[in-house]
Design a protein around this nucleic acid. Structure first.
Lengths: 126, 126
DNA sequence: ATAGTCTGTTGGGTAACCCTACAGTCAAGG
DNA sequence: CCTTGACTGTAGGGTTACCCAACAGACTAT
């Protein structure tokens, strides 16, 4: 299948697909078209793309996903390693959440102060 | 003062300072040194840098901060505009929090499953 | 023959810096 | 006096995960 179809089914842009390929995450065979070549994808890439998105959701960068996909089938993570990794992810997420809560509080306070200012202005003009 | 001092006091890198200057957020006067020129900063930039960091915390990009700093002293945001802006920021933060909660849940579930696997493996080996 | 839709590559842009390399300046020490 | 070291500068590439525009060949339908 050609890139447009892959992109449509996978729900992403052609540039995104080509980007994955450039990063070595998926592969295509060149289909000749006159003097040029089109990327021809095996429908199986759709599953790989799904795995990539999944891994991204888990916090892997594309660079990290490469080796991960290759590990698929050969020596893979042990359950213990998986648990350790997931715990790390969870810690990272909790850190982000804490940071967001701080900012949220900061903004909330500012917001309240400004709301009071607006209220007072309204009263003064009334 | 020279860039190193500014960077040290402001708690950021020289490259960061130069970056701010390149973005037009702060300014320096050239101090001649032989055939070359060093950036000479007025200590007042420290306050400006503080304002920049503050604005960043509020979710402004550096590009947005430029006009904001210039507005300082002339026509500034009205309290109503400020409230509206802060509300937008808050909504954005809540969205990020919701996204993080989803991922968190996802990972937590996976983690529990894998923990169970590890437990069973332990029992089996025992 | 031509228009429209597909494909390709190339190169630049994004955000906020970090890092390396190369080089001039200047003060202190041998 | 010269060298060393700590400081400064610019230039250019790297980061992340793509997006976008330009230009052009391929293919299908009219």
């Amino acid at each position: 299948m050609l890139i447009n179809e892959v992109a449509r089914i996978a729900g992403m842009s052609k540039d995104g697909i080509r980007h994955y390929e450039e990063m070595g995450l998926i592969a295509s065979s060149p289909r000749q078209a006159g003097s040029r070549f089109y990327r021809d994808y095996d429908p199986a890439v759709l599953e790989v793309i799904e795995q990539i998105r999944q891994a991204q959701r888990l916090g892997f960068s594309l660079k990290e996903i490469g080796p991960l996909l290759k590990a698929h089938g050969s020596a893979r993570l042990t359950p213990e390693e998986t648990v350790a990794f997931l715990q790390d992810r969870l810690v990272a997420i909790h850190e982000k959440q804490a940071a967001l809560r701080e900012i949220e509080e900061f903004i909330s306070e500012k917001l309240e102060r400004y709301r009071r200012v607006v209220d007072e202005l309204e009263k003064a003009s009334a």
